[in-house]
Design a protein around this nucleic acid. Structure first.
Length: 259
DNA sequence: ATGTCTATAGGGTATAGA
């Protein structure tokens, strides 16, 4: 089973790019972030025409997540538990059953800038709620993945210019510590099981020719429970698409599971 | 060089968010 996570930066503005990508790369599952669409306006038809089941959790204007799957999606849950007052659409999860059942969690973690401030407080609080959901997933002792745009640069090696991000909400020590607390509960960060070292990014700003200068950061991640990590066959970043027509500022991150 | 892009409101061109 080949699973990709992809922050597409607006589904309606990105249809040609995303459909071309699906036709070429043909993931079994695509976890999408920043659909920037309410559920009723999500253009399901072209995805369904390509054989994908579609589950969305959107809101007006920004944020929004979706799961596309060639296999049926079961037990869909929308919203990260832990704060009934949080109306931002940043979490959707569902189970897909191939050779094995895999719980898929698609997340769009808050950016948190400017930091410090209320947006950063929201980011850290959201990460605490994520940790709680993560503990429950581990307790289930089943294959599960939490994948998406974490808006976290885990280490200096994950940025072309780490000094430029030192005080940013994506790289501050509190952010990195909160991310490590989740990973250290017992998750495997898929990409780093396959590729070590600097120079591997998943986001390049639209501004200042960041792509052409390879001035990127690695902020899109896939965290696997031990039972999912047992099934991990490959992990990679598909960076080439960033140089294509009308690209998102993020690129897809992939895993292959023996499931 | 804070240099770009998307969505919204509203009906031109501003603002927010990233």
């Amino acid at each position: 089973m080949r699973i990709a996570t992809f922050n597409i930066n607006g589904v309606k503005a990105r249809m040609e790019t995303v459909l071309g990508w699906l036709d070429e790369a043909a993931p079994d599952v695509a976890l999408l972030q920043e659909i920037k669409s309410v559920d009723e306006a999500f253009p399901r038809g072209p995805f369904e025409d390509r054989g994908y089941n579609v589950e969305t959790h959107g809101q007006k204007g920004f944020n929004g997540v979706a799961i596309l799957s060639k296999l049926p999606l079961e037990d869909v849950v929308r919203g990260l538990p832990g704060d009934d007052g949080d109306d931002q659409a940043r979490w959707i999860e569902a189970t897909v059953v191939g050779d094995r059942a895999v719980r898929l969690c698609c997340l769009y973690l808050p950016n948190g800038n400017p930091a410090p401030g209320p947006k950063y407080d929201y980011k850290l609080a959201w990460m605490e709620r994520l940790a709680a959901r993560a503990r429950d997933l581990l307790a289930a002792e089943e294959p599960a993945i939490m994948a998406g745009d974490y808006n976290v640069i885990p280490q200096d090696e994950d940025a072309a210019r780490p000094e430029a991000w030192k005080d940013d909400a994506l790289a501050r020590p509190e952010t990195r510590a909160a991310f490590r607390r989740i990973v250290n509960l017992g998750f495997t960060e898929a990409f780093r099981t396959r590729i070590r070292g600097s120079g591997h990014y998943s986001f390049w700003d639209y501004q200042a020719g960041a792509w052409n200068r390879n001035d990127g950061i690695r902020i899109d991640h896939m965290l696997l429970t031990p039972q999912a990590a047992d099934l991990l066959a490959d992990a990679r970043i598909e960076s080439e698409i960033r140089g294509g027509e009308k690209p998102s500022d993020h690129v897809p991150v992939w895993i292959t599971l023996d499931a």
